[in-house]
Design a protein around this nucleic acid. Structure first.
Lengths: 303, 303
DNA sequence: CTTCAGTTATACGGATTTGGTATTACTTAA
DNA sequence: TTAAGTAATACCAAATCCGTATAACTGAAG
């Protein structure tokens, strides 16, 4: 009992004739004859009473007709469901993000995605860059929105640059350096630093330290909070100054003054990461949306 | 998307491997590979992520898996339903019967049939032989329990003899002829007859008239009631005597005396009739039951 | 680091199945 | 009686499918 056979059977029953069914199915009458004959043989049941003039369905045939119609409808439904799933219209999407870097644009992007793919279950996880990397590796995350991955570890992952941020100096109001419109790295040498703790964002931390070394000093780090908001609060409290990407301006910066760091103390790329070995269609759809939205995101981030 | 393909797909998903599925399905791995590959191509969707080490199902695959399991279950259910219908376990059975001739055994037979085929809707119609013949011809009846059909008309019908009755004389109590243990037809010559009206049972009527003619007289028919019970009541009322098959004893015969008619005034076969062009399985099952019950019926009818 | 066992994908030849043509037998309507 | 239309059957060709052989690859064991 194959779908094809059932479709033939239903057509014969509906048109009450083998020849008519053959015409509708773009084949010839003997082919229909044999399909029905074989189906009857397989089931051990006669489905039609035939004479050369008319074809009448039997009780067994009527029973099969009901079931066959349902099965065919089910097959059709399955095809559509699977194709929608294959296009990413059904599924789930687990996104890890750095709140400081993503909260400026992520809500708008997710809202837009959910409008186009209403049956995709989107979950957002705020995680540090390191946590995102681990989660992506173990399959607990489909998308990571974070900083560049450690060079060697990026083997099985695809990366797409969303925007490139620059470093800024965050100063407490009234700080002497606030008088300058741009601040050279060397000018920070004598001041205490407050930096986001290294384990959560090793790339950023090391990049800042490297820039300082290149400028001829090693910064005195007086605090390493575990959130960017805590870093800002520390700065506003006068504990020290901080160096951080411009996206941090999205947070609450009352009591802080921001000045660009002179020259290219280092670009801070913000990237989308995903596995390349198995990419869900819904994940791919989100990636496509992100790529198409890069210009919007950059202008929204003030770049 | 064929049933066969879906079965393969479900097996692969369940065993998480193409080779394992091939073993279970008694075929080889490349056959499985191609079936899955073609299915994916047809749906335009990838169903599995394969590596040489493991096979993982995709979201689209999981969607199809659910549907496929349901479709396969549906197919299985359909097969069983159709086969039950084909064996006559589902359907309807419309039986026409002569109350006088059938009421002695029909209830027991129908009860027995309904026990074996509980899902067959049995309908009983009390009809004269002529009515049964018409109803059988127009397809309003599946089984006719009645007298032999007109010779020419029995072309498209099958007939099975259930039992052969003999003619008896029904006399009012105290009738002079009641003194005899057996009555010769000729002895009835002078007496008024009450016979079942001809249109409803032409065969029986004509057979009695013919027997009288052969005995040298033409009976004086004083009444032709339209039911056998009315005939008996007429006899008991002294309106006349009657000649009728022995099965009439099953009715209420108070006030009547019964005597066998001498010699073979004619056998009165009681038969089952059915169409031969299209016989429902449930009809055939009933016919088989009747054939197997003939001995029981004969003894139950006192033959 | 190499080997080995086990996996899926691909290519190709043969067997099986299926469809198409021609024909037969039959029924109904003209 | 004829003509048109139906389903069944036989036979051949075409398409499909299976099975073997092989390649490419992965993970585990030595």
């Amino acid at each position: 009992m194959e779908i094809r056979t059932l479709r033939t059977f239903v057509t014969v029953a509906r048109l009450k004739g083998f020849s008519a069914a053959a015409r509708e199915l773009n084949t010839v009458q003997p082919a229909i004859s044999r399909q029905i004959h074989d189906l009857e043989a397989e089931l051990g049941v006669s489905l039609f009473w035939r004479s050369t003039r008319d074809v009448r369905i039997t009780t067994a045939g009527e029973t099969l007709l009901q079931e066959a119609i349902e099965i065919l409808a089910h097959e059709d439904r399955a095809r559509k469901l699977v194709q929608r799933a294959g296009q990413g219209q059904i599924g789930r999407l687990r996104i890890g993000f750095l709140s400081s870097a993503a909260q400026g644009f992520l809500p708008a992007i997710v809202r837009s995605f959910s409008t186009d793919f209403p049956q995709v279950q989107v979950s957002l996880f705020e995680m540090t860059a390191a946590e995102q990397f681990t989660a992506l590796e173990t399959g607990q995350l489909d998308i990571a929105l974070s900083r560049p991955l450690p060079a060697g570890a990026a083997e099985h992952f695809g990366s797409i640059e969303i925007y490139t941020d620059r470093l800024f100096v965050f100063l407490p109001e009234g700080h002497p350096l606030a008088a300058q419109a741009r601040i050279a790295i060397a000018a920070l040498a004598a001041h205490p630093f407050v930096l986001f703790q290294r384990p959560g964002a090793p790339g950023l931390f090391d990049q800042i330290i490297t820039a300082c070394r290149r400028a001829g000093f090693s910064p005195e780090i007086v605090a390493q909070p575990n959130s960017m908001q805590a870093v800002l609060t520390s700065v506003a409290s006068g504990i020290g100054l901080s160096v951080a990407p411009g996206c941090i301006r999205q947070l609450d910066i009352k009591g802080c003054v921001i000045r660009p760091l002179q020259a290219d103390a280092g670009s801070i790329p913000f990237e989308l990461h995903h596995r390349t070995d198995r990419t869900e269609p819904s994940t791919q759809a989100f990636i496509d949306l992100m790529i198409n939205s890069r210009e919007d995101i950059r202008s929204r981030m003030g770049l």
